[in-house]
Amino acid sequence: MIQASGLSKSYQNVHALQDVDLRVEEGTVTALLGHNGAGKTTLVNILSTLLPPTSGTAMVAGYDVVRQSRQVCNVIGLTGQFASVDESLSGFDNLVLIARLLGASRLEARRRADELLDMFGLTPAARRAARTYSGGMRRRLDIAVSLVGRPRVLFLDEPSTGLDPASRISLWETVEGLVADGTTVLLTTQYLEEAERLADQVTVLSKGKVVAAGTPKELKAHVGERRVHLTMSCRADAATMGASLRRAGFNAIESPDDCTVSVPAAEFTDFADIVRTAADTRAAVVGFSVSEPSLDDVYLALAR
């Protein structure tokens, strides 16, 4: 649904994007990660026809974003970083206005407005002027506006910024529902938890370039692995446990700073073998924990 090849954008001597390649399959979520100024918003603006690229090509739903920009606009929805609703109108009237501009009848526009207000928990405030909404409510209304036309492709530029935890979770559930119905989503985010929750694919940008891309699982595999940590009662027990696990075929490592033994556990079946070996070893285990690499680890490793 989205394909970019060699996409670049320059402003005199500033290179906002440099030879970016991107592919997003239909009915999936791709997250763009990167620091402020990495080029995330520039890429979204090009794909949504708001900016022309300096070089390279991009297609959305089979349409060229430069030569067929009108067709692209007919199949996309966009929520920018800042709410852009008309604050003099009520939430209901904002949605009806957009629906009418998109060609809906008066009745269809009102029905769609009611549907979206209910979806985003804004029905109690439907008739209030948007200027009386809290920041989170305006953000939810802004996202609702981008869904009026039931877009095939949805661009969300840091959609959960300013939302409280409950509203953020509600937004995630809404995005998951849209994707389940076949919508393709490209989102930028500063929340790694958000990318981990929603994204099928993650693309990491830095200084306008793609520095890593893959599934969250693939990216996490580059910086670490799942490990089991056994905390022993003393260093002698840690040494005994480490030796026992190594005899069982595990690459166990005793920590030089405490009484902990760390063991890689690539497969879930490894857990049973580790527990069985630990139970058969005459050493006192006082703690057991499991750690997995996160997208936070990926992001920090790439930043370094």
Rank of each mutant, 00 (worst) to 15 (best):
V210E: 02
G214C: 05
P216S: 09
K217F: 01
E218N: 01
L219G: 03
L219Q: 06
L219S: 01
K220P: 12
K220E: 08
E225T: 14
V228S: 00
H229K: 13
H229M: 08
H229W: 10
H229S: 12
L230I: 09
M232W: 05
M232Y: 03
S233F: 03
S233R: 15
C234D: 15
C234M: 09
D237A: 08
A238S: 07
A238C: 02
A238T: 05
A239W: 06
T240G: 04
T240L: 14
M241S: 10
M241A: 12
G242I: 01
A243D: 15
L245K: 07
R246M: 07
R246G: 02
R247W: 00
A248R: 11
A248S: 10
G249I: 02
G249A: 00
F250N: 09
F250Q: 13
E254N: 04
E254I: 11
S255P: 02
S255R: 08
S255D: 14
P256E: 12
P256I: 07
P256N: 13
D257A: 12
D258H: 04
S262Q: 11
P264C: 00
A265H: 02
E267S: 05
F268M: 05
T269K: 11
D270L: 07
F271K: 06
A272T: 15
A272K: 11
A272Y: 10
D273L: 10
I274S: 01
V275A: 15
V275S: 14
R276F: 00
D280C: 11
T281R: 04
A283M: 04
A284V: 09
A284H: 06
A284T: 05
V285Y: 02
V286Q: 11
V286F: 00
G287S: 10
G287R: 07
S289E: 13
S289I: 05
S289T: 15
V290I: 14
V290N: 08
S291Y: 02
E292H: 10
P293T: 11
L295E: 01
D296Q: 15
D297S: 10
Y299T: 00
L300M: 15
A301N: 14
L302T: 03
L302V: 04
L302K: 08
